[in-house]
Design a protein around this nucleic acid. Structure first.
Lengths: 111, 111
DNA sequence: GGTTTAAGTATCCTGAAAACTACCGGTAGT
DNA sequence: ACTACCGGTAGTTTTCAGGATACTTAAACC
């Protein structure tokens, strides 16, 4: 659990940004930080995402054990998505991202 | 400089990930954390990036004031890229990214 | 019987990011 | 004269994430 070489550190950065990157994954994780959300709740709050894309992203996040899908009720179908215990660890990182963004948005986003 | 609403926080996350996301930008910034680097140094260390892509990414990072381009010598041409004082602030965030990656890579990248 | 709601699937399609290829001007080396 | 190095630019092509659109299953309400 340590950086042995420079290149190794860079690879970690690339890998993490691969998980959290893309148009939606970061936002989905950020939304799940607070509390579990149902499929259509996520769909509403993530303006303009389509069902198929949301499904794809959620399946990916499940695969990497960040998010779990829980069927709350069969009929009517109620499904809840929440961070796994492991996924919770992303909260801190997201907090740091928001912190940096708030401090530096003006310079970077040119206002 | 504060989060007023939930949606605002999410937008910050999306914006930051937009800067640092993509295939190369995070890696370029990570490499520049340690010390300034010349164009071809970056090109070598970022395996498989092409000149045109590297140029595009560097211009973008210049535009948002994260990186500065400095002509060290005219002939032979020597150009150095370094983080701006402002850009230095990303070091901490990258450190947090690496830290999270090292702790969680095994679960997430399935080993 | 028709419509609505929830949580999706299945296809096809598009647009933007990145790759590929070729080229430039100036200099130094052989 | 030829080649290689440095830091690019220009134009085209490929790739694939994400978007658009339509459909599904099962129950519940009107």
């Amino acid at each position: 659990m340590e950086i042995k070489t420079k290149q190794q550190g860079i690879k970690v950065v690339a890998d993490v940004l691969d998980i959290v990157g893309g148009k939606w994954r970061g936002q989905i994780l950020a939304h799940l930080c607070d509390d579990p959300k149902r499929f259509n709740e996520l769909k509403t709050v993530l303006n303009r995402i389509t069902s198929s894309t949301l499904t794809k992203e959620l399946r990916y996040l499940e695969d990497i054990k960040m998010v779990e899908r829980k069927i709350i009720q069969d009929t009517p179908m109620i499904v809840e998505y929440r961070l796994t215990t492991h996924g919770m660890s992303i909260k801190d990182l997201i907090y740091h991202i928001v912190e940096w963004g708030l401090k530096h948005r003006d310079t970077v986003f040119g206002k």
